[in-house]
Measured scan of single mutants.
Amino acid sequence: QIFVKTLTGKTITLEVEPSDTIENVKAKIQDKEGIPPDQQRLIFAGKQLEDGRTLSDYNIQKESTLHLVL
Rank of each mutant, 00 (worst) to 15 (best):
I60F: 03
Q48F: 11
D51F: 04
T54Y: 06
V25F: 03
Y58L: 05
E63N: 13
K62H: 13
F3K: 06
G52Y: 10
P36S: 08
Q30D: 06
T11Y: 10
D31T: 11
G52K: 11
Q40K: 02
P36N: 07
T11R: 08
I2S: 01
Q61M: 11
K47H: 11
N24M: 14
R41C: 15
L7M: 15
A45K: 11
K26N: 01
L66T: 02
L68V: 05
V69M: 11
I22G: 02
L55Y: 01
L42A: 01
T54I: 06
T6D: 07
Y58M: 04
E33W: 10
V4M: 02
E33P: 01
L55M: 05
H67W: 09
L66P: 02
P18D: 09
I12N: 01
Q1H: 14
I12V: 06
K26R: 05
K5D: 04
K5G: 03
L68M: 09
T6V: 11
L14P: 00
V16L: 06
L70F: 10
P37C: 10
Y58Q: 04
K62L: 11
P37R: 15
V25L: 11
T8E: 14
K32P: 02
F3A: 04
P18A: 11
Q30R: 11
Q30S: 12
T13A: 10
K5N: 06
F44Y: 15
N24Q: 15
Q39M: 12
D51W: 04
D38M: 08
K28M: 12
H67Q: 12
L68N: 01
V4K: 00
E17K: 15
R41G: 07
V16E: 00
K47E: 13
G46Y: 05
T21I: 04
P37E: 07
I43K: 05
E23D: 08
D31E: 13
E33T: 13
G9S: 04
D20V: 04
D20N: 07
Y58W: 02
T6W: 12
V4D: 01
L7K: 11
G46N: 07
I60L: 04
L7P: 15
G34W: 03
I29S: 01
D38R: 09
L68Q: 02
I35D: 03
L68W: 02
N24G: 09
H67S: 09
P18K: 07
R53A: 08
S64F: 09
L14A: 02
G34T: 03
L49S: 00
L70S: 12
G9T: 03
I29F: 02
I2A: 02
D57F: 15
L49I: 04
L42F: 03
Q1M: 14
D51C: 06
P18S: 10
D38P: 06
A27G: 09
V25P: 00
P18G: 10
G34Q: 06
G46W: 05
R41Y: 14
L49W: 01
T8H: 12
G34L: 05
P18M: 14
T8D: 12
A45W: 08
D38S: 12
Q1Y: 15
E50H: 09
L55N: 00
L68Y: 02
N59Q: 11
E17M: 14
S19I: 06
K26I: 03
I35K: 02
K5R: 13
I60A: 02
Q39Y: 09
A45G: 14
P36Y: 06
H67T: 14
T6L: 15
R53P: 05
D57M: 06
D20R: 02
P36I: 06
R53Q: 08
E50L: 09
Q39C: 13
E15A: 12
K10E: 09
K5I: 15
D57A: 06
G52Q: 10
T6I: 13
A45C: 15
K47A: 10
S19H: 14
D38T: 12
I29H: 00
I60D: 01
H67C: 13
L70I: 14
L42C: 01
I2Y: 05
T65E: 08
N59E: 08
E15K: 11
T6H: 06
N59A: 08
V25T: 03
D20H: 05
Q61G: 14
T54L: 09
E50W: 05
Q39T: 09
G9E: 04
S19T: 13
Q39H: 09
A27W: 12
Q39A: 08
K10D: 07
V16G: 03
D57Q: 07
K5C: 09
I60K: 01
K62G: 11
L70T: 13
R53M: 12
P37G: 08
L14C: 04
E63Q: 11
T11N: 06
Q30N: 09
D57K: 03
G34N: 08
S56F: 10
T11A: 05
P18L: 15
R41F: 11
L7G: 13
I43D: 05
V4N: 01
G9L: 04
V4Q: 01
K5L: 12
K10W: 09
L70P: 09
P36A: 10
E50M: 08
L70K: 07
Q30E: 10
E17G: 08
G9D: 05
I29Q: 00
T65K: 05
E17D: 13
D57S: 13
D38C: 15
D51Q: 05
V25C: 05
T8K: 11
L68T: 01
H67K: 08
L7R: 09
V25W: 01
L14S: 00
A45D: 14
K10F: 09
D51N: 11
N24L: 14
S64I: 05
I12Y: 06
K10H: 12
E17T: 14
T65Y: 08
V25N: 00
A45R: 11
K10P: 05
I29A: 02
L7E: 15
Q61H: 11
T54G: 03
Q61D: 10
R53E: 05
L49Y: 01
F44T: 02
E23I: 09
E17Q: 14
Q48A: 09
K32N: 05
A27S: 14
V69S: 09
L42N: 00
I22N: 01
T6N: 06
V4S: 00
E50F: 07
